[in-house]
């Protein structure tokens, strides 16, 4: 199954990935990270591996997309 990994500590909570995700598979986490933001969090399923979150994310290390499994 395609899925994404979000590096909690490198996310600045801008929400662009949440906004762009065509299947609404990303949300804000409740907890606050070391940078002081509510980071984005993958809901756990629904990812189609479209990679849009990767390209809209301004942080180099925040999102990894696994397109297959």
């Amino acid at each position: 199954m395609p899925h994404i990994e979000i590096s909690t500590e490198n996310c600045k909570g801008c929400g662009l990935c949440i906004h762009i995700c065509p299947v609404s598979a990303i949300e804000f986490a409740k907890e606050i990270n070391k940078l002081g933001y509510h980071p984005a969090r993958y809901k756990g399923d629904g990812c189609t591996g479209c990679t849009l979150c990767f390209y809209t994310c301004p942080e180099p290390s925040a999102i990894t997309v696994y397109r297959k499994s």
């Binding site: 590096s7 500590e9 490198n10 600045k12 909570g13 801008c14 929400g15 662009l16 070391k34 940078l35 933001y37 301004p58 942080e59 180099p60 290390s61 925040a62």
Partner: peptide
Amino acid sequence: NKQDTHYCPGC
């Protein structure tokens, strides 16, 4: 933090 950028969120 040597992993994130110096840019603002959403830049």
